[in-house]
């Protein structure tokens, strides 16, 4: 008897909820036809769709914000688009190898600035690039969430339509640096965590290929020195611009 009653109650609640759901569904459908203001998406049949797709990106950057070195980071990234507006990207860039014999050696992606050359000229043989200067980036890897709230098209010279999106990125990563000791007598290779933020623009070339122009800021604690020993005093924010091409699978 108790079971029957319970069953009846359960059946009644299931019926009530399904009736309510049906009513809700009809209401929703009717709203299409009987309202003075429909909620319409601004865009239908989006030409360049990315939702649910993976992308692989090859990029080459320019990092010139540091006083002693400038870099051409080369990188590779993998991206997954949860929706047309949101994605997660994991990427890494390479800039150089650890130093040896007091010099940075032959580096393709790392270059000395004029200040470094000047110091070297002044100190002559006493100059040691690994201990006299500051951090030198070797590589970095990070994961960022990318939000693309803006999608649009522009008329290129009024002859060709070009589609683009603008995005914002925020994430975290790790950077490996060649770092001098506090007394500048020795150096070591160290890892440092970093906060990554920035933005970018993507131009859609075909349904599968996108050209990307990104800017990134990396906030990390730099080398400790006599003048900068506290965490906030050591904070550095190098900036990087990169040009890349993505292929969507």
């Amino acid at each position: 008897m108790k079971n029957t009653l319970l069953l009846s109650v359960l059946m009644f609640s299931a019926f009530s909820s399904s009736a309510a759901m049906a009513e809700e569904n009809v209401e929703k459908e009717l709203a299409n036809y009987w309202t003075t203001e429909r909620e319409l998406p601004v865009l239908e049949n989006r030409m360049f769709e990315r939702e649910g797709r993976f992308a692989l990106t090859l990029k080459l950057g320019l990092l010139t914000s540091e006083p002693f070195f400038w870099y051409n980071p080369i990188g590779l990234g993998a991206q997954y688009h949860f929706s047309e507006q949101a994605s997660l990207e994991v990427s890494g860039t390479f800039m150089g190898t650890p130093s040896s014999d007091g010099d940075i050696g032959l580096q393709i992606f790392t270059h000395k600035t004029e200040i470094t050359d000047f110091i070297k000229r002044e100190r002559k043989d006493a100059f040691d690039v690994t201990t006299d200067l500051e951090d030198r980036f070797l590589w970095r890897a990070n994961a960022v969430l990318i939000w693309s709230p803006l999608y649009g098209k522009l008329a290129f010279l009024n002859t060709k339509l070009s589609h683009f999106d603008l995005n914002l990125a925020l994430g975290a990563g790790v950077v490996q640096v060649d770092r001098p000791s506090v007394d500048h007598k020795s150096s070591s290779t160290e890892f440092s965590p970093e906060l990554v933020f920035g933005g970018g623009v993507g131009f859609f070339v075909t349904k599968d290929v996108t050209i990307r122009l990104d800017g990134r800021f990396y906030m990390y604690p730099g080398a400790e020195s006599e003048s900068a020993s506290g965490f906030f005093e050591r904070l550095k924010v190098p900036s990087e611009f990169s040009l890349g091409a993505s292929y969507l699978f």
Binding site: P41, V42, L43, K153, N158
Partner: peptide, 13 residues
Amino acid sequence: WQRWDFEGEYWLD
């Protein structure tokens, strides 16, 4: 006025 060719997308405006 500017001519925008239809490429498959429907923009509300």
